[in-house]
């Protein structure tokens, strides 16, 4: 399910493209799950970049599917971590110590791209140095507008807030700063009347 074409209706959502080679002193790849395939495709025609590349990969439900192939790229650094929170201190460290001229490539779920892009911008990276390529799950990273809690990997609409438990509908409104879409109580005007959850984009 790669290269899904998102509906054009959401002006506030970032545009996802395909990684392209850009000159840089160093290259940072952060990917989750199927996002590894974007790195592999890119490296196929840009093998020379790997010598100055740091790859951070969180396989999630892909398990070992891509790990051997990533190892074979001979990047200068490769880290495979169990979860995003586990990888976070490493990611923040790398971003904080990045020099001008770093190129950042984020691939995989919208949630991963959102969170890492927000972290990169907070660390002072310019938007021009960040590329996004969506791969795999169409899940969204959602923030409950009521309790502010963020629920990862939301794949249905409505969904249940993992913090306050309200049933929320998935609003097509995206905050780049927070890296989240907005979830709003679906039964606010008719308490208890929660429509059946349907898969996003279906």
């Amino acid at each position: 399910m790669s290269n899904f074409e998102f509906p054009s209706s959401i002006v506030s959502r970032p545009v996802y493209g395909t990684f392209e080679a850009r000159p840089g002193h160093s290259h940072l790849f952060i990917a989750d799950a199927e996002g590894a395939a974007a790195i592999l495709d890119f490296a196929g025609s840009n093998q020379s970049v790997m010598a100055t590349s740091h790859i951070i990969y969180i396989p999630k439900d892909c398990g070992d599917k891509y790990v051997k192939q990533l190892e074979a790229l001979n990047a200068s650094q490769l880290y495979v971590g169990p979860t995003y929170p586990a990888a976070m201190s490493r990611i923040n460290h790398v971003l904080a110590n990045a020099h001008m001229g770093i190129q950042i490539y984020l691939s995989g779920t919208e949630g991963l791209m959102s969170e890492t892009r927000t972290a990169a911008m907070a660390a002072g990276a310019s938007l021009d140095s960040i590329q996004l390529e969506h791969r795999g799950s169409l899940s969204r990273r959602m923030q409950c507008v009521h309790c502010k809690g963020i629920t990862e990997d939301v794949i249905t609409d409505p969904y249940v807030c993992s913090h306050c438990g309200l049933n929320l509908f998935v609003r097509d409104h995206y905050s780049e700063r927070l890296g989240v879409f907005q979830g709003v109580r679906v039964d606010a005007e008719d308490h208890g009347n929660v429509p059946d959850a349907v898969e996003l984009y279906k």
């Binding site: 002006v11 506030s12 097509d172 409104h173 995206y174 905050s175 780049e176 700063r177 927070l178």
Partner: peptide, 15 residues
């Protein structure tokens, strides 16, 4: 405001 802060003119009018 908490959600929209930092958005540009087109982003905050997206809905």
């Amino acid at each position: 405001l908490d959600f929209d802060i930092g958005m540009n003119f087109f982003q905050w009018h997206a809905p």
